[in-house]
Nucleic acid binder design. Structure first.
Lengths: 145, 145
DNA sequence: CTCATTACTTATCATTTGATAACAAAATAA
DNA sequence: TTATTTTGTTATCAAATGATAAGTAATGAG
């Protein structure tokens, strides 16, 4: 099998994934949130509690800029910070009640849009999709990062 | 089968795809190109010739901003514009020789990184991957856009 | 204790990107 | 013909993001 052909197929695939992600997530929050801030909230939502350093690394941004965005999110009552009792330099970030509500609504909206995407899928189709996702995770994405 | 579970699997999958895309494409050009400009060149590369209006729509940006970025790319000799002989309002954009060279090098670099990702895959693995990509394209991504 | 390191903040500046108004030229419709 | 629409440009402003210097407080190593 031709690896180069597989590469081209993969590139086309990722382009489509990016397009679909854009469609699924556009206009997702009424709140006046920047794209970067949404990304950060999304990460906190699925990984909380997280430290600013972790956010900084996962979002590929500098710690000062992370700190600035977290301050804005805290001012808007969307997140809360707690300092580690053992190591008081460290901080843990969580969504506030309001932030949780906002992100849950956002996720619900994305899920609804996703379900529309697969509305005509049969049970067999769903199994195929699930299996395909698992194959790619295992054989391409989980290789070493 | 639980569609909601599939949704969560899909979300995790797309997050990983975005991460891998980031890794595959980071520091890809020596040229002093902004991320947006790279995206535009990438689109031109695979779809040329394209009009500014098409770029504008596919990249989700306004026509004035598209025009500005194209001007910068033209000043840097990375693209060329031609006006349509039939409808002289229209313009066709292509990569210049230099732009082609740059993008081919970029793509070659990305392909090399991708091949590393699947370096341990057997022939059967490759067939599985190819099939998985096809399934997802057909049953999720090509539903209606 | 002293010194270096870690985790984070504040401040500042540059660059990139987005938004919008105003315009021009060509094509099309009336 | 005149009016309208399409395609694109230029100019300008605002906002978002990136980069970096300097500083604080806590921890840990020696």
């Amino acid at each position: 099998m031709n690896k180069s052909a597989l590469f081209h197929q993969f590139v086309a695939f990722t382009a489509t994934i990016h397009q679909v992600t854009h469609d699924l997530t556009q206009n997702i929050t009424a709140a006046n949130i920047t794209p970067l801030q949404y990304k950060i909230l999304e990460y906190i939502k699925v990984s909380q509690p997280v430290t600013p350093t972790e956010i900084s690394e996962c979002q590929h941004m500098s710690l000062p800029n992370t700190s600035r965005e977290l301050r804005k999110l805290q001012e808007r009552q969307l997140i809360q910070k707690f300092s580690d009792t053992a190591d008081r330099r460290k901080q843990y970030v969580r969504l506030s009640k309001e932030g949780e509500k906002m992100m849950e609504e956002a996720f619900a909206c994305i899920e609804e849009r996703f379900l529309q995407l697969i509305q005509h899928a049969t049970q067999d189709d769903l199994k195929d999709i699930q299996h395909a996702l698992a194959i790619l995770e295992e054989k391409v994405l989980r290789q070493n990062g």
